[in-house]
Design a protein around this nucleic acid. Sequence first.
DNA 1: CAACTTCTTGCGACGTGTTGCATGAGGGAC
DNA 2: GTCCCTCATGCAACACGTCGCAAGAAGTTG
Lengths: 154, 154
Amino acid sequence: MATDPTPGRGRAAEAPLRDRLRQRGRRVTLQREAIMQVLRGCAGHIAADDVYRRLREEFPQINRSTVYRTLHTLEELGLVRHTHDETGAPRYHHAEDPPHVHLVCRGCGGLTAVDELPVLEQLVASLRDRYGFAADPTHFPIAGTCAQCRGRRG
Amino acid sequence: MATDPTPGRGRAAEAPLRDRLRQRGRRVTLQREAIMQVLRGCAGHIAADDVYRRLREEFPQINRSTVYRTLHTLEELGLVRHTHDETGAPRYHHAEDPPHVHLVCRGCGGLTAVDELPVLEQLVASLRDRYGFAADPTHFPIAGTCAQCRGRRG
DNA sequence: CAACTTCTTGCGACGTGTTGCATGAGGGAC
DNA sequence: GTCCCTCATGCAACACGTCGCAAGAAGTTG
């Protein structure tokens, strides 16, 4: 891939990737830049295979395992994170996306995003006090049954 | 459901399966009984594919998709449940196993089982009040970093 | 017990994710 | 620019999980 001349997404955004790769003795490759580009241009969460499919349109020779391995690498570098959807499948997102918790209904599959919940912070504090455990409650969703599905049958 | 008076694993334990299947117009098959038997004889959580592998020793002709479909069926009947491990992969267990939450460390993979945590109940109550959402905090683990891994690098 | 209905199973193919290995490319030294 | 070392990529094969379909079996009716 050539460098990106587009005005919308400035090339300055690519610096963190190059810097972090070099800091750790890893290499800067076209594939890594392209994959990071997809994550940057993606509003919410995205499945690894969707990243692969998007890239194939532009780079038909790119390999699935390169995409999967690169996502792990970018996560190690702290540029990308993943959470899990309602089935437990991984979903990737840019590391700077604001954190939030998902409530997922096992009846209808409905999703609710929760940005703030004081009790959640109390839970995190309690786990830190009792177990020395630094919890990240955004990594997995919280499963349950939504109001509508509760009303419907139980 | 009939109570099971057998101390070991008596055949009375099979009655709930047959009853529930018939109640819903589903059929009683050897495969279903064998799969339920594996879950009953399994202390903790088990991967679907491990159920399959165990059954193959006794029933070499059994098919992988039968096992997967049957686990879903047994879950519909309320006899089996699944949670998710630290990678998000499903883990099955007998429905009567006592519920608990898993803390999973993303550094070392270490697991801590939490039986009681008052703040967790407050969280469940809060989600019910604010969203009408009946949360099951045992379904997904809580990801984070354990005390040792925090000390090591962070 | 024989016929019939329809649920279940086994099979094959596919989707998503991982791994081992040979080839290819990044980047440092000169 | 060239050499060289090592990392990264592409490929092929595998592991786990799902789906559509035809054959088989559970259970019902007479």
